[in-house]
Design a protein around this nucleic acid. Structure first.
Lengths: 148, 148
DNA sequence: CGCTATTTGCAAATGATTTGCAATTAGCAA
DNA sequence: TTGCTAATTGCAAATCATTTGCAAATAGCG
């Protein structure tokens, strides 16, 4: 049977190969989660993923575990918006280091091309049509005292 | 009784006035929390604050509530390092918009003077002696669809 | 087709944070 | 100084997000 482009085309996704490379299985739940994220244009929380999936298709715990593993493989990105729940979005390109503009109301996101911060907020606001743009920036590292 | 500079000098802190302005009471627990944060050079989690306080001095729930209120008044800053717990540090100056360099091991922090991000990590690393410096940057705002 | 490491579901544990409510108290007013 | 009242506290219990243990199910290789 030849694969038809009109029905489920499930064998040409970039994540398929990436999963196999790590000897990870492409199971029903995982495929469902990935296809859902593929379809969404905003990061979803575990619960949102769970609820969006056809009832009984996948356990909440499995969502947590899948998403965690996908993050480890660099297939999805975790967003900590600051409200209690983590959100996840597909990382289309293997392109790490991208910043995002998140709507504080609907959590929809847009990718930011550049990576400057100075006059940024205004510039970002102007280009994106978002309003009341703010940003959160933190640096992380190992301090001198801890480098021992 | 005249106030002695050698013992508890508790009436000249910048936060005292700020609390009163908002018709907030300067209670024992609050003073204890503020003086603790004043003394620490790193953001503390609610639990850490609770444990650092003289036993029985203040309930854990009160720490949560106090710290939340102090954040609302702009007296402390909340840090979401990404591990489950929020941390709080005194905001010495009313100076909002400051970025911080956080040690991922001990959570000690340093203020970052500038606010550029480009070649930043390297520069920040070099100046601070921190290693393995990374950063997290997100923008927030109201997207066009939500501005109605 | 069979085997085995990987996954899943379910129940229950954890941990952080919040909420309800009655008792307590800071700070203003008389 | 003494009262009064709104703000605050403590304690118990509720929520919520996330994790863990374990036996049953299964993807994918040989």
């Amino acid at each position: 049977m030849g694969s038809k482009a009109t029905s489920k085309v499930c064998d040409d996704r970039p994540w398929q190969a990436r999963l196999r490379q790590q000897s990870r299985k492409l199971t029903g739940p995982r495929r469902a989660i990935l296809e859902l994220l593929e379809r969404e244009d905003r990061p979803l929380s575990n619960k949102e993923i769970f609820q969006a999936l056809p009832k009984g298709q996948c356990d909440l715990v499995t969502v947590y575990r899948s998403v965690q593993m996908l993050e480890r493989l660099g297939i999805v990105k975790r967003f900590q918006l600051g409200d209690g729940a983590a959100r996840f979005a597909l990382l289309e390109s293997g392109d790490h280091h991208r910043h995002h503009l998140v709507c504080t109301r609907c959590t929809r996101i847009e990718e930011i091309g550049e990576c400057i911060v100075r006059e940024l907020e205004q510039r970002v606001a102007a280009r994106s049509k978002f309003k009341a743009v703010t940003h959160r920036l933190e640096f992380f590292g190992i301090c001198p005292a801890c480098q021992s």
